[in-house]
Nucleic acid binder design. Structure first.
Length: 417
RNA sequence: GUGGCAUUAGCUCAGGUGGUUAGAGCACCAGAUUGUGGAUCUGGGGGUCGCCGGUUCAAGUCCGGUAUGCCACCCCA
């Protein structure tokens, strides 16, 4: 590897410098604060798991498993995968930690995910997600709660108005299987007219064909069997209760019969908050119900519902990051004052102030620095002030300044905290 | 993984048909202003023109490859 090549970040990864990091913290912190009101507790699961955790749960034929996983053998020969999403990890955690005793559990998480995809705006190989999982409730009210929490998070971030909530039902396992068979039969008779992509989908995930953008596919899809005709009464009743619950809460939604999910573990409710403001990567928060997942992984038969949201996408939608907290600048003049300033800086920090102390430069340079870092006030200490046991405090917005006795500095500076 | 477009200073970008020491704005540094920042003016530092190779007397400019970004597809947060 050449020196230059090694200095590039790995494709699809990004450094988060302070401005962007603050934007991320705003998104994550806002979500954490909101979902806590619903009783969600934050947890963290490892960013890698045995590959089986993802292979078995996401579906052997899913795109994530077939081409997007970062997998490797570790030194012990175990097959390891960097998590491409976190629901499987949380489900594994639920089983490993014996949490079936405590249902229902409400979890919130935030952290990096990894998918080996071709990068684009809003799509990176290492990206960050926040998400919630509500495990152990089979009632449709749980779906409504989870969606409502998503709405509140988007609203608190000021982006709800830029999104549309699309919702659909995938039915229970029985409904889904009979519909799947009907689709395979129908599309099987029209393979000649299907796009190459859709012919592949026919064996892997025929529901995907419904969502195809190919014009020829769309003509065939227009006459395809409707999912509504294959939903059993229980599935219909479940979905009705979800939509009724949303209406009760005044949550606007757009039914989208063609909304499907790429991951095998979903059933019943599927939903996505989409936006047209981010180009092709329009999904900012999405999720659904995954009643079969935990049993499939070897746990007890435990239902679950949740969502995940992309931190980068939400941050982009939010626009500018919140400003950093403004510091006060300590500006000593002369050796005696510099020595005093080091001690004073510690004192002021102990009182909760953010304090910047430059270690070199004359008064003019230090004032320029204070200005550059957007200090709210500068505290000037020279021989004059020192002899009087005081400091000159300059308000950097108004330019006014006054002398303050050193012992009462904390009290005076409280307005800048 | 497929196709298209891009890559020149820290950032945003100029650089007809190849032709002497590659430019601008912003940012940065210094001075005007040696106890007072922001504005203005003056000056300054900073570029292996993504990388490798080819064509040519001569390549930032043309060709090939490669890396990365962006756009679309695929799929998803």
């Amino acid at each position: 590897m050449t020196k230059m090549a090694s200095l590039q970040p790995i494709r699809g990864t990004h450094d988060l410098l302070p401005d962007e990091m603050r934007a991320h913290r705003h998104v994550v912190g806002t979500a954490r604060r909101i979902v806590e009101l619903y009783g969600y507790e934050e947890i963290a699961t490892p960013i890698f798991e045995f590959s089986q955790v993802f292979q078995r749960t996401l579906g052997e034929a899913s795109d994530i498993v077939t081409k997007e996983m970062y997998s490797f053998a570790d030194k012990g020969g175990d097959l390891i995968t960097l998590r491409p999403e976190n629901t499987a990890g949380v489900a594994r955690c639920f089983i490993s930690e014996g949490l079936a005793q405590q249902v229902p559990v409400r979890f919130f998480y935030a952290g990096p995910m990894f998918r080996h995809e071709r990068p684009q705006k809003g799509r990176q190989r290492q990206f960050h997600q926040i998400g919630v999982e509500l495990i152990g409730l089979a009632q449709p009210e749980a779906d409504v709660e989870v969606i409502a929490a998503g709405v509140r998070v988007l609203d608190a971030l000021g982006v709800l108005g830029k999104t549309v909530l699309e919702i659909n039902t995938l039915g229970d396992h029985e409904s889904r299987e009979s519909y799947r068979q009907a689709l395979v039969a129908y599309f099987g008779e029209h393979t000649a007219g299907l796009s190459e992509d859709s012919r592949t989908r026919l064996s892997r995930n025929p529901l995907r064909i419904l969502d195809s953008k190919d014009e020829g596919d769309r003509r065939i899809v227009a006459d395809a069997p409707l999912f509504a005709d294959y939903l059993n009464p229980a599935s219909v009743a479940f979905f009705d209760r979800v939509t009724a619950g949303l209406e009760t809460l005044g949550i606007a939604f757009a039914p989208n019969p063609r909304l499907v999910r790429g991951l095998d573990y979903y059933s019943h409710t599927a939903f996505e908050f989409t936006t047209t403001a981010l180009g092709a990567q329009g999904t900012v928060l999405a999720g659904g119900r995954y009643d079969g997942l935990i049993k499939m992984m070897g746990g007890s038969d435990t239902p679950g519902v949740g969502w995940a949201a992309g931190v980068e996408r939400l941050a982009m939608l939010c626009g500018t990051a919140p400003a950093a907290r403004r510091p006060v600048a300590l500006v000593p003049v002369g050796a005696a004052a510099e020595a005093e300033a080091v001690k004073l800086a510690e004192r002021l920090r102990a009182s909760g102030l953010r304090v910047d102390l430059a270690y070199s430069g004359n008064l003019g340079r230090r004032m320029k620095r204070a200005n550059r870092i957007a200090a709210s006030a500068s505290i000037l200490i020279g021989d004059d002030e020192l002899s009087r046991g005081a400091a000159t405090v300059r308000n950097m917005d108004s330019g006014t300044q006054e002398e303050v006795a050193l012992p009462s500095l904390e009290e005076f500076l409280a307005q800048y905290r």
